[in-house]
């Protein structure tokens, strides 16, 4: 427990101004991340993606981010500015998005997109970037990197697209990876495969991983620790193994509706909700 945390978040708030009053998408969220796998669960709209984007400095206009403390290692992220963030993104902290069909640029070859991350952060020739991209494709267990390098996103399957996405985000060796629903758009058969690759890379490189999902069993089986979010707030934090002993009614509700969760994204029929939870009761 002597190593300083990779990421420190204290009282993070994200607000979207709107005509009918501000939307508080994230309210006073606090946690720290070490070299571990932290899961964040919650139903759709609970603020998980916004939280991830706030850490990356990518909350879209006119959203506002405020925090009492927001640090990546020793770097204060609060007043970093766009160019400061740019040097960190991809290099020290990266993000895997949900659906490779939309998250990869359709008019650029996948190899080019991977190499591009390398070139943005590592000085060197185009040839070196290409070599690194090929190695990275190999590392995400793509069998014929030379061929896949030249393919375009529409020519690769969902599973392969997500492995490309992972390669693109990990090629510059970041120490923290935020994976926002990385397998939700994939067929069940390739989900485990992609997760295994992610797991292997994160462990092998000693990274910290934030795995965002609405899928509680997946998070429970994959992560060391779980945050449960509801309406922008963390309502429960516990070890993944201790989830069955969770006390918060919302978490218990999530657990109770487990069978549904595998298939349905948004509907949690038996789930009770209490506005008081959002107020930090």
């Amino acid at each position: 427990m002597t190593a300083p945390p990779l990421l420190t978040v204290r009282n993070l708030r994200v607000t979207y101004p709107a005509a009918q009053g501000d939307i508080h998408a994230v309210r006073n969220v606090s946690f720290t991340l070490a070299r571990e796998r932290l899961g964040i669960v919650g139903e759709s709209g609970s603020g998980k993606s916004t939280l991830g984007r706030a850490i990356m400095g990518l909350v879209p206009r006119p959203g506002r981010v405020a925090a009492d403390e927001l640090r990546l290692g020793a770097i204060d992220l609060r007043n970093l500015g766009e160019s400061g963030f740019r040097r960190l993104r991809g290099r020290r902290i990266a993000m895997v998005l949900q659906d490779p069909k939309f998250a990869l640029n359709p008019v650029m070859s996948v190899g080019h997109q991977i190499a591009e991350t390398h070139r943005a952060h590592v000085r060197g020739s185009a040839r070196a970037a290409r070599r690194a991209a090929l190695e990275m494709l190999h590392a995400v267990r793509i069998r014929d990197p030379e061929r896949v390098f030249g393919l375009y996103p529409h020519q690769v399957s969902g599973g392969m697209g997500q492995r490309v996405m992972i390669a693109m985000m990990l090629i510059a060796d970041p120490e923290v990876l935020i994976a926002d629903e990385p397998t939700s758009a994939l067929d069940a058969t390739v989900q485990t495969q992609v997760l295994a690759i992610l797991d292997e890379l994160v462990r092998g490189r000693g990274m910290g991983l934030i795995l965002i999902s609405h899928n509680l069993p997946l998070v429970a089986s994959f992560c060391d620790r779980v945050l449960v979010m509801y309406s922008g707030r963390v309502v429960e934090t516990c070890g993944a193994g201790a989830l069955r002993q969770a006390r918060h009614p919302y978490t218990r509700g999530l657990l109770a509706s487990l069978p549904e969760l595998d298939h349905r994204r948004d509907v949690l029929p038996q789930l009770q909700r209490d506005p008081a939870w959002a107020e930090g009761a």
């Binding site: 990518l58 740019r86 993104r89 998005l97 640029n105 943005a120």
Partner: peptide, 8 residues
């Protein structure tokens, strides 16, 4: 978003 997230 992805392009920004990789630090371009």
């Amino acid at each position: 978003l992805a392009a920004l997230a990789k630090g371009l």
